[in-house]
Computed example of a mutant assay.
Amino acid sequence: MLTCGFYDEAGEFAFRVGLPGKSGVGGGVAAALPGKFSVAVWSPELNVKGNSIRAIKALELLTDELDFSLF
């Protein structure tokens, strides 16, 4: 999931959020920190690459606030 779960935006998502994740065309995003937690976020507005704008931002804020990242 880390390298291909967000189609053309996989690398940017991995860098910004720091978790393996998978997006769906309906605006859903699932992400996990192995051995710690998993989370699902949904917001229908998609960016030009077909991924949820607010879901990605929410996960970025979550991992920043909790200081969780694979990196």
Score class of each variant (00 low, 15 high):
residue 69 S to F: 13
residue 4 C to H: 14
residue 28 G to V: 15
residue 57 K to E: 06
residue 14 A to Y: 01
residue 57 K to Y: 09
residue 59 L to W: 03
residue 64 D to W: 05
residue 13 F to L: 00
residue 61 L to Q: 10
residue 14 A to W: 02
residue 10 A to W: 00
residue 8 D to Y: 10
residue 31 A to V: 02
residue 63 T to H: 03
residue 57 K to F: 12
residue 44 P to H: 13
residue 38 S to W: 09
residue 59 L to S: 00
residue 13 F to N: 04
residue 50 G to F: 14
residue 50 G to P: 06
residue 13 F to D: 01
residue 37 F to W: 10
residue 32 A to Q: 04
residue 16 R to E: 06
residue 32 A to I: 05
residue 30 A to H: 09
residue 67 D to Y: 03
residue 61 L to D: 07
residue 6 F to H: 11
residue 64 D to R: 04
residue 5 G to Q: 07
residue 39 V to E: 05
residue 65 E to Y: 04
residue 12 E to Y: 09
residue 42 W to S: 04
residue 10 A to M: 01
residue 6 F to W: 14
residue 53 I to H: 14
residue 52 S to Q: 13
residue 71 F to N: 00
residue 29 V to C: 02
residue 29 V to N: 01
residue 48 V to S: 13
residue 20 P to S: 02
residue 48 V to T: 14
residue 46 L to C: 13
residue 37 F to I: 05
residue 35 G to V: 11
residue 3 T to F: 04
residue 60 E to M: 10
residue 20 P to H: 08
residue 48 V to Q: 13
residue 31 A to H: 06
residue 13 F to Y: 11
residue 50 G to E: 13
residue 68 F to A: 03
residue 22 K to P: 05
residue 65 E to T: 01
residue 5 G to R: 04
residue 60 E to C: 05
residue 24 G to R: 10
residue 47 N to P: 13
residue 71 F to L: 03
residue 7 Y to A: 12
residue 48 V to H: 13
residue 41 V to S: 02
residue 62 L to A: 02
residue 37 F to D: 06
residue 41 V to Y: 00
residue 20 P to I: 07
residue 17 V to Y: 04
residue 46 L to R: 10
residue 26 G to K: 05
residue 22 K to T: 03
residue 53 I to Q: 15
residue 50 G to I: 13
residue 49 K to N: 15
residue 31 A to C: 10
residue 46 L to V: 15
residue 58 A to Y: 07
residue 37 F to L: 09
residue 39 V to D: 01
residue 9 E to D: 15
residue 23 S to H: 10
residue 39 V to A: 05
residue 68 F to E: 00
residue 36 K to W: 03
residue 15 F to Y: 12
residue 70 L to K: 08
residue 68 F to I: 04
residue 3 T to W: 07
residue 49 K to V: 15
residue 37 F to Q: 06
residue 6 F to T: 04
residue 43 S to F: 11
residue 65 E to H: 06
residue 6 F to K: 01
residue 21 G to R: 00
residue 63 T to V: 06
residue 66 L to C: 06
